[in-house]
């Protein structure tokens, strides 16, 4: 078991609290699909890509809009809480606490498709 010290650079109270989003399924990139055909193109990954919106209705239920899907989830407590660590990338390999996660948002319902184009004759 590796043991290492975690520094707390800021006062504990000021450490931001993050939330985890847990979704039941996979996130895919459209580009990946295209990339499969063209092997020269490198796989970019999700880095920096916006994947969706979370909204909260009046009762606080989260709504996730992801791609052409929308789903409702719920907020649950994470116990014990997680700490999000960042490394300082120096020789020592020190880590510091970036954030603390006490709650997570779980989306495990079947997503509903969003239909943007409705054939005119159905209207």
């Amino acid at each position: 078991m590796v043991q290492f010290y975690v520094k707390c650079s800021k006062p504990f109270e000021t450490i931001p609290e993050w939330k985890v989003i847990e979704i039941q399924g996979e996130l895919n990139l459209r580009e990946d699909k295209e990339a499969k055909k063209d092997e020269n193109k490198p796989n970019e990954g999700f880095g920096g890509k916006k994947f969706g919106d979370i909204h909260f209705d009046e009762s606080g239920t989260p709504i996730l809009v992801l791609g052409h899907h929308t789903m409702t989830g719920k907020i649950t407590k994470v116990s014990p809480p997680y700490g999000v660590l960042g490394s300082e990338r120096n020789e020592k390999g020190d880590y510091y606490v970036e954030a603390i996660i006490r709650e997570k948002i779980i989306f495990k319902t079947r997503p509903k498709p969003i239909i943007t184009h409705v054939p005119t004759r159905l209207k």
């Binding site: 039941q24 996130l27 895919n28 459209r30």
Partner: peptide
């Protein structure tokens, strides 16, 4: 836009 977003989701039932 909604229909043509870069990221899409595949649900595991």
């Amino acid at each position: 836009g909604v229909g043509t977003s870069e990221v899409y989701f595949a649900f595991n039932a």
